[in-house]
Design a binder for these strands. Structure first.
Length: 840
RNA sequence: GGGCCGGUGGUGAAAUGGCAGACACAGCGGACUUAAAAUCCGCUUCUCCGAAAGGGGAGUGGGGGUUCGAGUCCCCCCCGGCCUACCA
C-alpha cells in the first residue's frame, strides 16, 4: 500500500493527542531509573509563541528526548512567568483585567506549545500568577524577612517616568528603562530589598558548574569585587548655630591606597549626606545649584557613552585632612563620583587616575606624582597629557618610598592600619536587590503596617494575600492597590487594630527565582515543596535559555538557592548544573526580527505549510545551536525534501516487509548497510550529546542518501533483515528531531511486522541504539601522502597496515618520487589511518 | 574605553593540528513529462595548461611566527556582532 507523499497534517495532531493520553512524557516520582531534569526557561505569556521560543524549546526538547531514549527518567516541565508589566499595560490600553488577559494568553500558548510536539511534562505546569503559586512566593518572602535577608529602607531608586515604577539596577540599560527605553530618573522611596550582597563572595564561585565561560565572566563582572582600603579623611566643620567646631570622618574606598600621598583634592558625590554640612556659606548657592542639576540629570547623561564628556564639579569651599600625609586638600562635589559605589567619596589622585587627572586639569588643581613607572624618570606633571600608569616604584611618599611595584598596596595598608585611619576593605559593584514594584500585577508583599506594632509580617496561615480583581489603573506612581480600600485597609495581625497593607508587589524575578523548585512538587498545598521531592529532582541537570538572562534571572536563582540552603530548606548549593545559551534566530534579511522591519517569521504559518517536524529540524539545521542565524525560506525547503525522502524510503521499505530476524553475520551489500548503520549511530549520538543538532541532521541526511544509493545499486537489499534494521535505526536516530514523522512510520512498521495495536509502544521510549566500534571503520582507508607538506598521492590501504609497509608503498609511488626530485629522505611521519608525510 | 564571540564558496555552513568547503540552499546541465510542477541524476572555490582524460598553481579578513604539516596554535593589525562602561 504505497502511502503517497509525506503529509504531516494527517498525523501530527493524532500523535500529540496520543502522547498526552499515554502520558509518555510525564515523569513519575516513583520511577527508579536515574532522573534527568531537563529545563528550559519558562515564557512570559505574551499570547504568542514566537520563533525564538521554538528555537529554544526545540533544541531543549531534542536533548530531553535523546536522554529519555538513553534510559533516564526525564522530566521536561514547562509553565508561565505570568506576572509583569505587559499585562497591566494591556489592561490600561484595552480595558481588560490583567488576570483575564494573562490566562487567555496562556491558553493560546499552551495550544501553540502542543503544536511543537515537544515532550512537556504538563502535570508539573506552574503558572506564577495563580494564588496556589504566589502563595508560596509570599511565603518565601517571609522566610527571607525572618532571616533578615529582606529589609525595607528609603533608598534612591531608579524611576521610570513612563512605566511609573521603580527599576532594579539590572533593569536599567544604559540609563534607559529596559522595557520602554525611557531615560531613568532617581527618586527616594521606602522600598523592600533582598540582601543578595551577603552572598557576593559565594556567587563568585562556580565550582563544578558546567556553565559558559562568558556567563560566569559576566556575573563576576556584575558582582565587581574590588580589593583595596577604606581610609577615613578628617573634616573640621565650621561652627553652626553657636555650636563648637566639630570633626567628622569621611571614609573613602580606594583600590590604590599606595597613592595616598598623591591626593590633591577630595570629591563627594552630589547626593552625599555630608554635602550640606561641608559647604562653606559663600559656596552655598553654587553647590545647591549643582546638586539640583545633577538630580534632574538622567542616568543616561551621567553614565554617558561619551567618554570625552568634560568633567564638571563645584568646590565646597572647605578642606579635609589627608590622615596619612596631613595635607589639607579642597573638597569638591562632582557627578563623576557615584553615591552608589564605595562610600560615595573619592580621594583625588590626578597623577595616576585618568578621571582625577581630567578633573584636575579642568579646575587647575595640583598634580603630585607618587609612582614612577619602571625605566622612567620623574617628570613635571604640567607637561603630561594623561595620568601616569600606577605600575612602578613609589616616590614622594614618606614611609612608602622605594616600595617596588606590587608591594606598595600591602605596605600602604599596613601604614594606614598602624596610624588607625583606615583598614583593608573589599567593595562590590553588586547592590542589594530592590524588589518593590509600585504595580498591581505582581505578588503582593505580605506585610502590614500597624501604628502600634510597625512592620508586621502576615502570618503564614493567612497566605495568600490575594490580589483583588477590581482595580483601577491610574498613573499615580503608586500601586493601584493603594486605591482598593478592601485591600489597603486591614487589621494588625498582632493587635487586631486598624492597619495598612503594603501595596507594592514583588519584582517578577522573585517568581522566576524558584519556579524550578516548584516543578518538583507542583501540587503541594501544604508547602512550597516537599524536601524529598526536591531532593529527588534537583538540581537541574540541563538548563537552556537565552544569554540575556546571564546577570538577572540566573544570578537571582543562584542567590535564592544559597539563601534557602542556609535556611535549611534545600540541601544543594547551585540550581543549574549545566547551562546552555541558544543563539538567536534572525529574519531572512539577517536582521533581528521585528514587526517594523516586516521580517518576522510566525511559527504557526510555517508549521501550517511544512509541519512541525520540518520546522523543528530546519531550525536546528540552520547552524550551531548556540549561534542561531538567519531564517531562510529556501533553506527550509531542503529539510522538507529530506523529510520526503525519509518518508519515501521508509514506506517503500515497510512495503517490502519488516524483518526482525537475521542475526546471521551480514555479508556483501548487507555488510555495507550494517557499516552505514553503525557509523550513523556513532556520529548522531556524539552530535546529540554535544547539542550539535546541525551536524546530527547532516549525518542523518548522508545516511539516508547512502541507503538510497545502496538500494539503487542492489534493489534486492530491501528484503534483507539488515535493511530493515537500518531503516528502524534511521527512525530511532531521527525521532528526537522529528517526533511525529518517526512515530507514524515506526507505528506502521510495527503493525506491518505483526504487532497488535494494543502492544504498541512509542518510538520515543525505545532504547537508544549502540554501535560496534569494529563496524565504524572501513575495510580500506585512504592514506594521503605528502611531500614537504603538499599532497602528492593517495594510497588505498587496510586501516591496520604497518608503518613500514606504508612507508615502502609511499616511497614507491611514482608521483611521490617525482615530487622528491631525487632529494634524499630526511624524515618520515605516519599518522595511522590518515596520512604519511615525506620530508626531504 | 574595557571584555567576550566571530570573519571560510554566490548563500547557510562543515572540518580531534593531517585531503578545506561535509550537509544543504541557490545556480547550471540532464532524465521523466505533450508541458509545467514535483521527483531523480550530474556539475558547481578561483585560476592556469589541455580537445578530453588529466594535470599545475593559488586559496579560510591582512601581516608575521611555531610545525614535516595551520581555517585550527602564538604575536601584531583590520572589520563585524554581543555585553559592559566615570566602579575610585
Amino acid at each position: 500500500m504505497a502511502r503517497g507523499r509525506f503529509q504531516p497534517a494527517e498525523f501530527e495532531r493524532k500523535w500529540q493527542e496520543w502522547w498526552d493520553a499515554q502520558g509518555i512524557y510525564y515523569a513519575r516520582d516513583d520511577d527508579t531509573r536515574e532522573k534527568y531534569y531537563n529545563l528550559m526557561m519558562f515564557p512570559y505569556p505574551s499570547g504568542d509563541l514566537h520563533i525564538g521560543h521554538w528555537y529554544n524549546y526545540t533544541g531543549g526538547d531534542i536533548y530531553g528526548r535523546y536522554m529519555r531514549m538513553r534510559g533516564y527518567n526525564v522530566t521536561q516541565p514547562i509553565g508561565f512567568d505570568a506576572f509583569g508589566l505587559p499585562a497591566e499595560n494591556a489592561a490600561i490600553k484595552r480595558n481588560v483585567q490583567p488576570r483575564e488577559w494573562t490566562l487567555d494568553n496562556i491558553g493560546k500558548m499552551q495550544a501553540q506549545m502542543r503544536l511543537m510536539g515537544a515532550g512537556w511534562d504538563w502535570p508539573r505546569e506552574v503558572v506564577s500568577c495563580l494564588p496556589d503559586y504566589y502563595r508560596w512566593t509570599q511565603w518565601l518572602f517571609l522566610q527571607f524577612y525572618k532571616q533578615g535577608l529582606a529589609y525595607r529602607t528609603k533608598a534612591p531608586a531608579n524611576w521610570c517616568p513612563h512605566c511609573n515604577t521603580t527599576l532594579a539596577n539590572e533593569q536599567v540599560v544604559n540609563g534607559h528603562c529596559e522595557r520602554c527605553g525611557t531615560p531613568v530618573e532617581r527618586r527616594e522611596i521606602d522600598q523592600w530589598l533582598l540582601r543578595i550582597t551577603k552572598y557576593a563572595d559565594e556567587l563568585l564561585r562556580f565550582d563544578g558548574m558546567e556553565w559558559p565561560e562568558k556567563t560566569r565572566l559576566m556575573q563576576t563582572n556584575w558582582i565587581g569585587r574590588s580589593e583595596g582600603a577604606e581610609i577615613r579623611f578628617r573634616a573640621d566643620l565650621a561652627k553652626k548655630r553657636g555650636k563648637g567646631a566639630e570633626t567628622v570622618e569621611i571614609p573613602v574606598f580606594t583600590t590604590r591606597p599606595d597613592t595616598i600621598y598623591g591626593v590633591t583634592f577630595f570629591v563627594l558625590a552630589p547626593e552625599h549626606p555630608l554635602v550640606e554640612r561641608m559647604t562653606a556659606p559663600e559656596q552655598g548657592e553654587a553647590v545647591q545649584e549643582y546638586v539640583e542639576r545633577t538630580r534632574h540629570e538622567t542616568e543616561i547623561d551621567r553614565l554617558s557613552v561619551d567618554v570625552a564628556r568634560p568633567k564638571t564639579g563645584v568646590p565646597l569651599g572647605t578642606t579635609v585632612t589627608n590622615p596619612v600625609s596631613g595635607a589639607q586638600v579642597p573638597v569638591w562635589i562632582a557627578d563623576y563620583v557615584l553615591m552608589g559605589y564605595g562610600s560615595g567619596a573619592v580621594m583625588g589622585v590626578p597623577a595616576h587616575d585618568q578621571r582625577d587627572f581630567e578633573f584636575a586639569r579642568a579646575f587647575d588643581l595640583p598634580i603630585i606624582q607618587v609612582i614612577r613607572p619602571e625605566g622612567e624618570e620623574e617628570t613635571d606633571p604640567a607637561t603630561w597629557e594623561a595620568a601616569k600608569s600606577h605600575e612602578g616604584v613609589i616616590l614622594n611618599s614618606d614611609g612608602l618610598d622605594g616600595a617596588p611595584a606590587g608591594e606598595g598596596i600591602a605596605r600602604a595598608i599596613k601604614l594606614i592600619e598602624a596610624k588607625g585611619v583606615g583598614k583593608a576593605a573589599v567593595t562590590y559593584r553588586l547592590r542589594d536587590w530592590l524588589i518593590s514594584r509600585q504595580r498591581y500585577w505582581g505578588a503582593p508583599i505580605p506585610i502590614v503596617y500597624c501604628s502600634e506594632h510597625g512592620t508586621v509580617p502576615v502570618p503564614e496561615d493567612q497566605l495568600p494575600v490575594l490580589l483583588p480583581d477590581q482595580v483601577e489603573f491610574k498613573p499615580t506612581g503608586e500601586s493601584p492597590l493603594r486605591y482598593v480600600p478592601e485591600f489597603f485597609e486591614t487589621t494588625c495581625p498582632i493587635c487586631g487594630g486598624p492597619a495598612k497593607r503594603e501595596t507594592d508587589t514583588m519584582d517578577t524575578f522573585i517568581c522566576s527565582s524558584w519556579y524550578f523548585l516548584r516543578y518538583a512538587d507542583p501540587k503541594n498545598a501544604d508547602a512550597a515543596w516537599s524536601a524529598e521531592k526536591v531532593a529527588q529532582w534537583l538540581p537541574v541537570d540541563m538548563y537552556i535559555g537565552g544569554p540575556e538572562h546571564a546577570t538577572l534571572h540566573l544570578m537571582y536563582a543562584r542567590f535564592f538557592v544559597k539563601a534557602l540552603r542556609d535556611m535549611g530548606l534545600l540541601n544543594f548549593d547551585e540550581p543549574f548544573a549545566r547551562l546552555y545559551h541558544q543563539g538567536m534566530v534572525l529574519g531572512p534579511d539577517g536582521q533581528k526580527m521585528s514587526k517594523s522591519r516586516g521580517n518576522v517569521i510566525a511559527p504557526d504559518d510555517v508549521v501550517g505549510r511544512y509541519g512541525a517536524d520540518t520546522v523543528r529540524s530546519y531550525l536546528m539545521f540552520m547552524g550551531p545551536f548556540d549561534q542561531g542565524g538567519p531564517w531562510s525560506n529556501q533553506g527550509i525547503e531542503g529539510v522538507a525534501r529530506f523529510m520526503n525522502r525519509v518518508w519515501a524510503l521508509v514506506t517503500d521499505a515497510t512495503e517490502a516487509g519488516v524483518r526482525v530476524d537475521g542475526q546471521a553475520k551480514p555479508v556483501g551489500a548487507a555488510l555495507g548497510i550494517e557499516r552505514l548503520r553503525h557509523k550513523a549511530i556513532a556520529r548522531v549520538t556524539a552530535d546529540y550529546e554535544g547539542l550539535r543538532f546541525n551536524t546530527a541532521l547532516a549525518a542523518l541526511m548522508e545516511y539516508v542518501n547512502s541507503l538510497n544509493k545502496t538500494r539503487e545499486q542492489s534493489p534486492e537489499i530491501v528484503n534483507d533483515a539488515a535493511f530493515s534494521r537500518a531503516v528502524d535505526t534511521l527512525l530511532v536516530l531521527l525521532a528526537p528531531m522529528a517526533p511525529h514523522l518517526t512515530e507514524e512510520l515506526w507505528h506502521e512498521r510495527r503493525l506491518r511486522a505483526g504487532m497488535a495495536e494494543s502492544e504498541y509502544t512509542s518510538i520515543h521510549v525505545q532504547p537508544w541504539p549502540e554501535y560496534d566500534p569494529a563496524l565504524i571503520v572501513d575495510e580500506t582507508v585512504t592514506i594521503v601522502v605528502q611531500v614537504n607538506g603538499k599532497v602528492r598521492d593517495k594510497l588505498e590501504l587496510a586501516p591496520d597496515t604497518a608503518e613500514d609497509e606504508v612507508r615502502e608503498r609511499a616511497l614507491a609511488s611514482a608521483k611521490v618520487r617525482s615530487a622528491m626530485e631525487g632529494r634524499s629522505l630526511k624524515k618520515f611521519i605516519y599518522v595511522p589511518g590518515r596520512l604519511a608525510s615525506v620530508v626531504v
